[in-house]
Computed example of a mutant assay.
Amino acid sequence: MSDWDSVTVLRKRDPGKAKVTRTDAEINAARRAGVAIATDKKSTLTNSSHADTDHRRIAKLDRDNDVAPPPRVDVSVGKAIQKGRQDKTMTQKDLAQVINEKPQVVNEYESGKAIPNQNVLGKMERALGIKLRGKNIGDPLTFGGKKK
């Protein structure tokens, strides 16, 4: 038992004369003699509330130093998706099936809560036939000067 952090106190009949030991041999001898043994663990922390305060302060610093949250889809894009979907008489579920995404994804894009993904926007553009990226959002999608 070569643990630096623990102290074993061997007590004989007189509680005023306690002996401190750190070896296994002395502890085993005391057990054989039937002496009361008490083991105390010493802590290296002097003030636990101080350590707790440090953790709270560090956590606050981490929250304050967070980078800007990722941009969300613009509201105009969401309205364009909704208008294009309604022009084709599609529900959010129908559009999700066409672009092979979950209906929740379509809902998030329409409400402006989604983080833009160029692949998803491209699939929506092709399915709805309208522009959702760049300038002129909501205009008909054209390929080489021709409308699709």
Score class of each variant (00 low, 15 high):
residue 81 I to F: 01
residue 102 K to S: 11
residue 80 A to H: 04
residue 68 A to W: 00
residue 86 Q to I: 07
residue 97 Q to I: 04
residue 56 R to P: 00
residue 81 I to K: 01
residue 70 P to T: 01
residue 52 D to F: 08
residue 88 K to M: 10
residue 63 R to H: 12
residue 51 A to W: 07
residue 43 S to Q: 02
residue 41 K to A: 13
residue 94 D to H: 04
residue 37 I to R: 01
residue 50 H to A: 14
residue 75 V to Y: 03
residue 101 E to R: 13
residue 92 Q to T: 09
residue 76 S to Q: 08
residue 48 S to H: 09
residue 51 A to M: 13
residue 36 A to K: 13
residue 73 V to M: 02
residue 116 P to S: 10
residue 116 P to F: 03
residue 104 Q to H: 04
residue 113 K to A: 15
residue 88 K to T: 03
residue 81 I to R: 01
residue 69 P to S: 06
residue 97 Q to T: 08
residue 108 E to N: 11
residue 63 R to G: 11
residue 96 A to I: 06
residue 104 Q to L: 09
residue 87 D to I: 05
residue 90 M to N: 01
residue 39 T to R: 08
residue 100 N to G: 10
residue 50 H to E: 14
residue 93 K to V: 14
residue 72 R to T: 13
residue 64 D to M: 15
residue 69 P to Q: 05
residue 109 Y to F: 07
residue 50 H to G: 01
residue 36 A to H: 07
residue 49 S to Y: 08
residue 83 K to A: 13
residue 51 A to G: 02
residue 42 K to L: 10
residue 37 I to Y: 01
residue 49 S to A: 12
residue 99 I to R: 05
residue 65 N to V: 03
residue 73 V to L: 02
residue 81 I to L: 04
residue 113 K to Q: 15
residue 104 Q to Y: 01
residue 53 T to P: 00
residue 74 D to M: 06
residue 75 V to S: 15
residue 57 R to A: 15
residue 118 Q to C: 04
residue 91 T to M: 02
residue 49 S to L: 11
residue 90 M to E: 04
residue 81 I to D: 05
residue 91 T to L: 01
residue 75 V to L: 10
residue 96 A to C: 09
residue 100 N to K: 15
residue 89 T to G: 02
residue 108 E to Q: 12
residue 48 S to A: 11
residue 97 Q to S: 09
residue 119 N to I: 11
residue 86 Q to P: 02
residue 79 K to Q: 12
residue 79 K to I: 07
residue 113 K to W: 01
residue 72 R to L: 10
residue 120 V to T: 14
residue 73 V to S: 03
residue 60 K to I: 06
residue 92 Q to E: 11
residue 68 A to T: 08
residue 98 V to N: 08
residue 38 A to Q: 08
residue 99 I to G: 03
residue 73 V to T: 12
residue 116 P to A: 11
residue 46 T to G: 10
residue 52 D to R: 13
residue 112 G to K: 01
residue 82 Q to H: 03
residue 80 A to C: 07
residue 72 R to Q: 12
residue 90 M to I: 03
residue 93 K to G: 12
residue 106 V to I: 03
residue 45 L to R: 07
residue 93 K to L: 12
residue 63 R to P: 00
residue 57 R to C: 05
residue 74 D to C: 02
residue 72 R to G: 08
residue 103 P to L: 07
residue 36 A to Q: 08
residue 105 V to L: 09
residue 48 S to L: 14
residue 83 K to N: 12
residue 69 P to D: 06
residue 119 N to Y: 10
residue 48 S to T: 14
residue 116 P to W: 04
residue 89 T to I: 06
residue 49 S to E: 12
residue 116 P to M: 07
residue 57 R to S: 12
residue 120 V to C: 05
residue 93 K to I: 12
residue 115 I to V: 14
residue 119 N to S: 14
residue 40 D to A: 08
residue 40 D to E: 10
residue 103 P to N: 11
residue 48 S to R: 13
residue 50 H to L: 14
residue 100 N to P: 00
residue 70 P to Y: 00
residue 102 K to L: 12
residue 39 T to Q: 13
residue 81 I to E: 02
residue 117 N to I: 04
